[in-house]
Amino acid sequence: MLWEPSILSLQVTLVASVLILVFGLSFGIFLARKQFPGQIFISTLLNLPLVLPPSVVGYFLLLALGRGSPIKEWLGINLLFTWQAGAIASAVVALPLMVESTRAAIGSVNSELEAAARTLGSKEAEILWRITLPLAYRGILAGFGLSVARGLGEFGATLMVAGSIPGRTQTLPLAIYDAVQSQNYGLANVMVLLMTTIAFTLLWWVRLLERQKEKGKGKIDAVDSRY
């Protein structure tokens, strides 16, 4: 059964990617732009999924989505053991990579350019849209690629909130575990090869972006070097 987990992985990763893009970009921009008390606390919190055991992240997600949570009790939405919960788990685990990349990419834009745009009459949102994001997009895109790759490979937290229900929540990483458990090595081999290829391609793309970024930076620095 290669087909079902592949479609599910695609589905989960697509939704997770949208979540990563929306929240990762917002948090990243917010943290790069605003100075506020408790900033370190917030950014530390956002980075936690990077180092916590997947089971701990999964446990927090159970609390957030399960019985007694606002989503379940007030909105009446039951997400546990659906593929949507898997998408949320993937997004949460991958989010730190996106937030940090966005923040770093925005922080590396020469602030003199933003100051120049301000003296030319731009509002902050316009500066973000016309100056900062276009100059930071390669770094942001690289972070996005990294996050998607991480989300695609998500296993532990997904298992806890979505389970491993074949045809409903069993994505490729979970299906591989299942296949190995039931000693179906032929299937496991195919899926392992598929996962490795996709991950390799994504990381390759990230690396290419980073190289372009350095080249692009060279050009920008050529303009800057006359300090």
Binding site: N110, E112, L113, A115, A116, A117, R118, T119, L120, G121, S122, K123, I131, P134, L135, K219, I220, V223, D224, R226, Y227
Partner: peptide, 19 residues
């Protein structure tokens, strides 16, 4: 804010938008 001050600024490194 800068945008409402009607000042033109020529930066030391020119700060041209590279893109």
């Amino acid at each position: 804010p800068s945008r409402d001050r009607k000042v033109g600024f020529l930066f030391q490194n020119y700060a041209l938008f590279p893109h």
